[in-house]
Simulated assay, not measured.
Amino acid sequence: MTALILGLVIFLGVHSVRIFADDWRSGVRARIGANAWKGGYSLLSLFGFGLLVWGYGQARLDPVLLWTPMIGTRHFAALLMLPSFILLVAAYVPQNGIKARVHHPMVLAVKVWALAHLLANHTLADLLLFGSLLLWSVLDFRSSRQRDRAAGTVYPAGTQAGTVVTVAVGAVAWAVFAFWAHAWLFGVRPFG
């Protein structure tokens, strides 16, 4: 469990600098340069993520059960993942109405993903991993929206074509993951 916690601290710590210390981040980035900042950020993120994944895998070998999941939560969580995939795709497809409306679809995708996995899982490691990421995504979304308001950020309007592509690609990615890739990667069939 130590590796999971350390991985979470590093990964979420790096990803929380803008939430809690944006002025410090801007100063360091200006002093060392954008590329050096991005390089250090990326290396720390990858290290933390690797530690987090390894620690979670180790914790799954000897799970500490916290509650008995309700019948159907796994299926409900799998269905919640559909909007999560669509939101994730919306972060990358240009000129889609979803990004135009919510502004930070990737953070919302993490929020829905974490909530879905909290509903479907019931161990201490699950609570640490998904609960931490849910809390981080709530704080990050709030912080991002505040920065947008302060900067007067205006997001371009989406087009119908961009939105249709976003929903279609998100739905296909969700289906591939739900019916094949999740079992292959994690040994769990969401609808199995």
Rank of each mutant, 00 (worst) to 15 (best):
P156R: 12
A78E: 02
F191R: 01
N96H: 07
R145T: 10
L52H: 05
T68Y: 05
L12K: 11
V89S: 07
V89G: 09
R189Y: 06
G192D: 09
R101S: 05
M81Y: 02
W54N: 12
L135S: 11
M81N: 09
F11G: 10
P190R: 06
V9I: 12
A100M: 03
L61Q: 15
G40S: 04
G50K: 11
V110H: 01
R101T: 13
V176E: 14
A157R: 13
P190N: 00
V169H: 13
G7C: 04
A150G: 01
I71W: 11
I98K: 04
P63G: 06
L61T: 10
R149M: 10
H117F: 13
S42L: 09
T166N: 07
Q146K: 15
L119S: 12
A161R: 13
V169P: 04
P69T: 13
L128G: 00
T123A: 06
L44S: 08
Q58F: 08
A116R: 09
R60A: 15
P156W: 03
A173K: 10
L185N: 04
L134C: 00
A120D: 12
A100K: 03
A151L: 04
V53M: 05
L61K: 14
Y41A: 04
I86N: 04
V28L: 12
V172H: 12
A100R: 08
K111N: 14
F186R: 06
I10S: 07
Q146R: 14
T166F: 14
K99A: 02
L44R: 09
V14T: 07
A178N: 10
P69F: 08
G40A: 04
